[in-house]
């Protein structure tokens, strides 16, 4: 048997379920009896309702109707991704059983087609393949021969005639080439005179 204080304490929390109508019929009946038995419980219930009524009366806020209209219009005009895909493929928004399957097939097909087109259109060379081909074509004998040719070319350039040839090729000016050659000869003669002094 609960004391009066215990009942009041219990009602403080259970009162909310009583107001909500969330209690079982037996429990509602139990509290109805207690409320008529103890005026403190009735007073608690009345005061609580009074507080809630005051709050409800003074907490009403009206949203700006223009703003509300804008929000609703903006929201309704938004399409979800699924709706966009449906529109793209002309799928109607009825509730057919195959709706999801059709949608998935259509979306998947688009991805496959797009992948194939991108693959065919793309002209980007594959650097890995090119490097591999060069490495496979490497011939040691040919490389050795190229090195020997380069050596001959260097020796040839040492020769004065070759210098003249090169100068002519570069400058395309015979006069400059002759002047250079005469200059070289004079330098060579000076060197020989110096060497013969001793």
């Amino acid at each position: 048997m609960l004391s009066k204080e215990e009942i009041i304490k219990l009602f403080e929390t259970e009162m909310w379920l009583f107001i909500d109508g969330s209690l079982s019929e037996d429990r509602i009946k139990f509290w109805e009896e207690k409320i008529s038995e103890y005026p403190e419980l009735k007073e608690m219930l009345i005061e609580t309702n009074q507080v809630l009524e005051i709050y409800d009366k003074h907490s009403e806020v009206e949203i700006d109707s223009k703003y509300y209209k804008e929000v609703i219009e903006k929201t309704i005009s938004q399409k979800t991704l699924g709706e966009k895909v449906k529109l793209l493929f002309g799928i109607r928004s009825d509730k057919s059983a195959n709706e999801n399957g059709t949608l998935k097939i259509a979306f998947g097909s688009t991805l496959v087609i797009a992948s194939i087109i991108i693959f065919m259109v793309s002209k980007t060379p594959n650097p890995v393949k090119n490097i591999s081909a060069e490495l496979l074509e490497w011939n040691p004998e040919e490389i050795t021969e190229q090195i020997r040719d380069a050596q001959i070319t260097f020796n040839f350039i040492k020769d004065e005639e070759a210098k003249k040839y090169v100068l002519e090729k570069i400058s395309n000016d015979e006069w400059s080439s002759d002047v250079y050659q005469i200059g070289s000869k004079i330098k060579q003669m000076n060197r020989e005179i110096e060497e013969n002094k001793f």
């Binding site: 929390t13 009162m15 909310w16 379920l17 005061e47 609580t48 507080v51 809630l52 005051i54 709050y55």
Partner: peptide, 19 residues
């Protein structure tokens, strides 16, 4: 649930006291 009921109870008590 009891915690929620307790929150509500304390909230209303404070409002009542203030009023």
């Amino acid at each position: 649930l009891n915690t929620v009921l307790s929150h509500m109870n304390y909230a209303v008590k404070k409002i009542k006291k203030d009023l």
